[in-house]
Amino acid sequence: MSRFVQLQTIPDVYRFFGLEDAVQHPLICIVDFSAVKEHVPEHLYVSSVYYTLIFKQYRHHAIRYGRRPVDFQDGSLICMAPGQALEMDPDAEASENKGWGLFFHPDLVRISSLGNRMQEFSFFSYEVAEALHLSEKERQALYDCIRKIGAELEENIDLHSQAIMVATIELLLQYCQRFYGRQFITRKSSDHAVVTQVEQILQHYFKTVAISDKGLPTVKYLAGQVHLSPGYLSDLLRKQTGKTAQDHIHFYLIEEAKNILLGTDKPVGEIAYTLGFEYPQYFNKLFKQKTGMTPLAFRGGN
């Protein structure tokens, strides 16, 4: 039977990993996984109220997402936003675990400039199977940030402590952003196949689906078709084509709208409904935004 655990406090984090409760700060902690000796119970799902970054090296598969195992043998980084859940796999030998975990509460960064920019780090919405695979140099860059945060936690908290830790977290996240950019480049050939697949899915959808009944395809729908998370798919497409998944959907929508405008004499309102818009003004606005003219002007100019 599955069991669900939510980590609500820093002491919860320490207790979950079977470590001595040695809280140094109420909103942030670092876990050294080489010190974790306890085995994880079977069928355990773990969630937390923290932003979580986990770098681990396993000899065996040890974490699953959506029942798909993730191979951490070479060392990978996963990033979780508050509320995301992982299924922990008990097959890994605890004595063979290496790596670190950084847990920080949204309140730590909320009033800083980083708090306003957290949504920019879209890798927090990726699935675990889309983990960041790191080179030795990249691992060291991230670990240097972890060491600096750890050293700050060892000091007595003063007026500068939080600002220094938040600045270091931001540096770490910037490194993650850079390294994911590198990963998209090194996976360019396989990612190109995803781009082609997305285009084929959209072409088929607009040719065969009654959009007025089923609605426009969503980013979540596209991501499910290519077995990726919505965030990862959008970032992949942006790196490969300069356009997000939503941009691709809109491109095929506008192309279909152009075909209907020039191939029929249907009123614009009826066309808008056929294309899944409840209100024609939304269709008009999107069409003008993408083409520079209204639907009627496009029809009249051709």
Rank of each mutant, 00 (worst) to 15 (best):
Y279W: 10
A193V: 01
Y273D: 09
D213C: 07
S229L: 08
P217T: 07
L236R: 00
D213T: 14
Q177M: 13
K207N: 15
V195S: 09
V195A: 11
L228G: 01
K243Y: 11
E256V: 05
E270M: 04
Q246E: 14
F184G: 03
Q240L: 02
I185K: 14
G215M: 04
S190E: 15
Y205G: 10
K214H: 14
T274Y: 02
Q240V: 00
V194Y: 05
R238D: 00
K258D: 08
P217Y: 02
L236Q: 02
P217N: 08
R178L: 15
H204N: 13
Q246H: 03
T186H: 13
T196K: 11
V194L: 11
F277A: 07
A210G: 01
Q200P: 02
L222C: 07
A272K: 04
V198N: 06
G276Q: 07
D213H: 11
I185C: 10
P230V: 12
F184C: 02
T218Y: 00
Q246D: 12
I211P: 01
A223Y: 05
H227I: 09
T244I: 03
G224P: 10
Y205H: 14
Q183N: 11
S234L: 03
T264Y: 09
G242R: 00
Y279Q: 15
E199H: 11
G269Q: 13
K214N: 13
Q203T: 15
Q246V: 05
D247K: 03
K207A: 14
Y252H: 15
T186N: 13
S212V: 06
A210K: 06
T208M: 03
R182C: 13
K220V: 10
R238G: 00
V268D: 12
H192I: 00
H250K: 08
G263W: 06
G181K: 06
I211V: 15
L222F: 05
I249A: 06
E255W: 02
S189D: 08
Y180L: 11
I260D: 06
Y221M: 10
G215R: 06
R182V: 13
T264W: 09
D247W: 03
R238H: 04
T208E: 12
D235L: 00
I201W: 01
V219E: 13
D265L: 02
D191H: 04
P230R: 02
S212N: 10
H250Q: 11
I254A: 06
S234P: 06
R238Q: 05
K220F: 03
E199Q: 15
T274G: 02
T196M: 08
D247S: 10
K220N: 08
V195F: 07
V219P: 00
